[in-house]
Amino acid sequence: MDFYSSQEVVTALGDKAEEKSRLSLLRVSILGIMAGFFIALGYLSFIRITGTLPQNWGSLSTFLGGCLFPIGLVALTFVGGELATGNMMVMTLGVMQQKIRLNALLFNWLIVLVTNCLGGILVAYLFGHVVGLTEGAFLEKTLSVAQGKIADSPMVAFVSGIGCNIFVCLAVYLGAMGKSYLGKIFGLWFPVMVFVVCGFQHVVANAFIIPAAIFSHSSQIQWLDYLENVLFVFLGNAVGGSLFLAVPLMFVTTKPKPKEVELSGAGVYEK
């Protein structure tokens, strides 16, 4: 077979969680910033392809942008990076397999989230604002997307975050199943493309698009609005990656232990 079995992948991801828990703070931080950079660059490509397309193209415009967005996850998978949303599944599997403790999970989620957001904000400022790639002719699209994210109520942002991370963690899972370079890319690409087309909210991606709108000085969005969005989208992403994917994966891949039956009158057990 040119792919790993579900049992092999779940076990390997649990081992991966153990490796992540042993990384130094400096290494986790650098890898977190890298991941934030890559995801933001994928979102930047989305803005550049959709920003000046005719409005009557409708959802086809979003589809074209969604085809480019996954390059961020592909890059961090092969080059290196710690992504908070993917770790929501991976670290949960590590806890469930008793390979790491809960405090290691929480520490990883917190540090990686903060550094991911830092990476996204840097791209928004340096490439979006200083270079101007999200402004000028593309500013209307930038503002429209960012305001759409902020406009969601806390409940909508939370539920949207759940939907997003089901797809993102599915991409991580399918990518881990592939044995070849192309197999991994196909596994990573399509679930991410679908979440973008659906318009779900991703806490790291939002760390690029919302600050990009703020840096343009053409939006009514404030940093407090961004922080509120981060909170509820993060919680939704966490639920989507852990409860909606990691827990079911453990359930369907864990083999039940064989029952022991006592032989009549002998006090001997067989499996």
Rank of each mutant, 00 (worst) to 15 (best):
G58M: 06
L231S: 02
L143R: 10
I221A: 07
G199F: 07
G136M: 10
G178M: 09
N206F: 01
V79C: 12
L13H: 01
Y4P: 00
L182S: 14
T52D: 13
A238I: 03
W57K: 06
K141L: 07
I209E: 04
P54K: 13
I30P: 00
L13Q: 09
I30E: 01
T134V: 10
T115N: 07
V112E: 04
S153C: 10
L249M: 12
I221H: 03
L118Y: 04
M96F: 14
W223A: 09
G94N: 09
S59M: 12
Q97V: 02
A246N: 04
V145R: 14
G42V: 05
F208I: 02
K20Y: 01
W57H: 08
V247G: 04
L118V: 14
S160M: 10
N237F: 09
F37V: 06
R101F: 08
I39L: 02
F78Y: 10
F38P: 03
R48C: 06
L139D: 06
I221L: 12
V197R: 01
P54D: 13
G175Y: 09
I47W: 09
M1R: 11
V252C: 08
F190C: 12
E135M: 12
E228I: 01
L68R: 12
G14H: 05
T11K: 15
I221Q: 06
L64Q: 03
I100A: 09
A124M: 12
G42L: 06
L41F: 11
G94Y: 03
L26Q: 00
I150N: 13
D2P: 07
G136L: 09
V204R: 05
E260H: 08
Y4T: 00
K99Y: 05
P258R: 08
L93I: 15
L68V: 11
G14I: 02
G81K: 13
E260C: 02
G128C: 10
K184M: 11
V204I: 14
G187V: 06
A75G: 06
I214K: 13
F37Q: 02
Y4G: 00
W189M: 07
G119P: 02
A157P: 12
G241K: 06
T11S: 14
T142K: 08
K255A: 14
G36M: 03
V74I: 15
V156I: 15
N165Y: 02
A151G: 13
G175E: 07
L227S: 13
N56L: 07
Y4A: 12
Y125W: 15
F127C: 07
T52F: 04
A246C: 04
V261M: 00
L25P: 00
L122F: 14
D15Q: 11
L102H: 11
K259T: 13
E140D: 15
L118G: 04
E19C: 01
S219I: 10
N237K: 08
L25N: 01
F63A: 12
V10E: 00
I185V: 15
C164S: 10
N237A: 09
A207I: 01
V247Y: 12
K99R: 15
K255V: 15
S216V: 05
W109C: 12
I209G: 05
V130E: 08
I185C: 13
A171R: 08
V172S: 11
Y226G: 05
C164M: 10
F37T: 03
P70N: 08
I47D: 05
V261H: 07
M193Q: 11
G148H: 15
F244H: 03
Y269G: 02
E135V: 02
S45D: 01
A146I: 07
Y226C: 09
T62N: 08
